[in-house]
């Protein structure tokens, strides 16, 4: 497509552009990185809140208390039947003794309350963990109804009001998050595309002269494409660097939070590079009359 000297020239030109217009390049990169910082901050906050929601939902379990007179065998049979139900991840059998031991532990070593008991008052129970997609209040309700019909079952508890409130909170959060996300994303795109357009405008004259002396459109585009990609990657990387600093501070002093994984970082930087590169190409369209 290009000869050696053209490639040589393009490489020189693309990186010289930073040198030639140092101030312009630095300022536009900074502006873009501020916009991208907002975007990456938003995404990170969303991811962390999702983590929290996830871990809250993972605490959802169904406690099935069996009747006092139910034989161990029939409870085992109930467990077997339940395991055939869809969406069950695991079922733990908690015997009366286990339950008492747990209770003792909860009270702490200094308490002798348990010791004064003449008889173990704790019922045996089944603790059911559900698979991720089945942790909804609807499905929990259905399961509870089924369980209450079983002869061995005395009581079923799964914190239904808590689950409902958690679900409502997650629903509201998702809607707000999507709206804010759309605004942040659009404003980041707006800032980036305008900044890119400015850098292209600043070199309108060069573009015009290139056209007049017989440069092909691809040859004119190339430096802008490379520059846009480099600028986008640098701006994205810078935004993530600042965010990482803030994250480290927050993680040490406030609350342990997660940061982007390497693959996510790479994706973010690549997407920034791609958006800036295509942005500068589309800003060029006007001058190239395509």
């Amino acid at each position: 497509m290009f000869t050696n000297s053209q490639v040589h020239y393009l490489a020189r030109e693309s990186f010289n552009a930073f040198r030639r217009m140092k101030g312009m390049a630095i300022i536009s990169t900074l502006i873009m990185s501020v916009a991208l910082l907002m975007l990456s901050l938003f995404i990170l906050v969303t991811l962390n809140l999702r983590d929290t929601a996830q871990s809250l939902r993972s605490e959802i379990e169904v406690n099935v208390f069996v009747k006092k007179d139910a034989a161990v065998e029939s409870v085992q049979a109930l467990r077997e039947r339940l395991l055939e139900q869809p969406g069950i991840e695991a079922i733990a059998y908690v015997s009366k003794d286990d339950a008492l031991a747990e209770f003792r532990q909860q009270l702490g070593p200094d308490s002798d309350l348990v010791d004064v008991l003449e008889e173990n008052p704790m019922p045996a129970s089944l603790r059911i963990r559900l698979e991720e997609p089945h942790r909804t209040s609807e499905k929990l309700h259905a399961l509870a109804t089924y369980l209450r019909d079983q002869p061995e079952v005395d009581e079923v508890r799964y914190g239904d009001t808590w689950v409902a409130r958690l679900e409502e909170a997650i629903r509201v959060f998702t809607i707000v998050d999507l709206m804010v996300g759309a605004i942040v994303l659009l404003s980041a795109l707006f800032v980036v595309s305008n900044t890119v357009r400015l850098t292209v405008l600043a070199r309108q004259r060069t573009i015009e002269i290139m056209r007049l002396v017989g440069a092909t459109n691809w040859f004119i585009r190339m430096p802008f494409f490379i520059e846009g990609a480099v600028q986008g990657a640098v701006a994205g990387g810078l935004a993530l660097l600042v965010l990482w600093g803030a994250h480290r501070y927050a993680a040490q002093h406030v609350h342990p939070l997660r940061f982007y994984e390497p693959l996510q970082i790479a994706t973010f930087v690549l997407v920034c590079a791609f958006v800036c590169a295509t942005g500068s190409l589309s800003a060029l369209r006007r001058f190239l009359r395509l």
Partner: peptide, 19 residues
């Protein structure tokens, strides 16, 4: 932003002549 030499050489860079 370019000197006389670079300005005159510009069309040749663009068309890919050898150095």
């Amino acid at each position: 932003d370019r000197d006389v030499y670079e300005n005159v050489a510009f069309p040749l860079y663009v068309t890919g002549a050898n150095q």
